[in-house]
Design a protein around this nucleic acid. Structure first.
Lengths: 206, 206
DNA sequence: CCCGCCTGTAACTATTAAGTTACGCAACTC
DNA sequence: GAGTTGCGTAACTTAATAGTTACAGGCGGG
């Protein structure tokens, strides 16, 4: 990280925050640098001063949002609880995180649609999810004491966990329309979260 | 539909097909009309002649891809089979459809990221999925004869079915990276499909 | 046979895009 | 207090962009 004055750092953060919102809403190609600076009121020159290019600004936006998930994952690990507890807690954690962080969801999807090329350019290891280690452990324990089916693969289980939550954000509008149900409605989402939890819990039970 | 000569219709289709590929790969804003015409070798004027605007061309691309799913859904309905058979057949149908139609997936995700605004502009009812009707029926039957848990909501079940398949496409690159697993590998995907099928089958079983 | 419509080309316009240059101001350092 | 360094503005350049206009060959119906 380069050194900036306090004031400069503030400006930098304002640009970054605005950029995150716009990139999330309109995509990388759909957002112009002019729009970002018009929104912040900061001069365009400063974008290049602090970030170097539109692409680097985008990458920093991506990294910033992704860091939120990693922080969350680290603080929700309870490896000593029984597998049922762990699974339902992961579900509700992801569910509310994704709903509360639409910018994250949008940037993540966008990056996948871009075949992960920005993640390749940055180093971005995407920390081989501590969530996975947790699942491996509790699934193994569960299998030993006979509460979990033998052929559960923790990796596919984790993907299912995420997929069951993500779909409510990633396909919200098409699903709402096709199934005539409002996936923006808090009460519906509460029921959905419970349904996901339940189906997965029964899904892994021996 | 307007009347075009056979030759004209062919040109139209060439433009549309090229546009689908480019819009899917680079997004609406990321694709220029010039790029489409350069790729096809057809003159730009023709895009406006046959489609009216870039946006209308995009909407037609979206509708064309979506029609593929609707066609598939209509041909895979077997309401008289037991619920287990139906669920695992829906899973493998969606799984292979999504993998075989990456353009569809990209356009669908893009449209959701755009809050479904294009679907609003077109009529596009997204036919209240015959899949849902099927599920409602077989779940009810299953609940009557005691093979399916009472509090399974077919709508959330369908969303879970889709979500479990979609996640392998929508988040392929970030998941591959985070879990150190290649979600482009056919064998991995075969196992994934089986894992999804199994977890959901056990998930609904009474 | 010729009028009109469908198909097509090439060159154009007006706007917007990313990125740069020239310049000024304030604060801190030597 | 002269020079350096970071913060900031406005005006600029160069390339692309969506959409248009002028124009023309070919073919079917009157």
């Amino acid at each position: 990280m380069k050194k900036f004055t306090e004031k400069g750092e503030l400006t930098r953060q304002r640009i970054l925050k605005t950029a995150i919102g716009l990139f999330a809403k309109k995509g990388f190609a759909g957002t112009s640098v002019d729009e970002i600076v018009d929104t912040t009121g900061i001069n365009k020159r400063m974008v290049y001063h602090y970030f170097g290019s539109k692409e680097l600004l985008y990458q920093e936006a991506l990294a910033t949002e992704y860091a939120k998930l990693e922080a969350l994952e680290l603080e929700t690990l309870h490896p000593d609880e029984p597998v049922e507890k762990v699974v339902s807690s992961i579900v509700s954690t992801y569910f509310s995180f994704l709903l509360d962080n639409p910018d994250f969801v949008m940037l993540l999807l966008q990056e996948n649609m871009n075949r992960g090329l920005n993640l390749d350019k940055m180093e971005m290891p995407l920390s081989k999810s501590p969530m996975l280690e947790l699942l491996i452990q509790v699934v193994k324990t569960g299998q030993k004491n006979g509460t979990v089916r033998k052929n559960i693969d923790p990796r596919f289980l984790l993907i299912s966990l995420i997929g069951n939550c993500m779909i409510y954000c990633s396909n919200r509008f098409t699903l709402s329309r096709a199934l005539a149900i409002d996936l923006g409605d808090k009460q519906v989402l509460k029921k959905a979260c419970d349904a996901v939890s339940e189906i997965l819990l029964h899904g892994i039970k021996a």
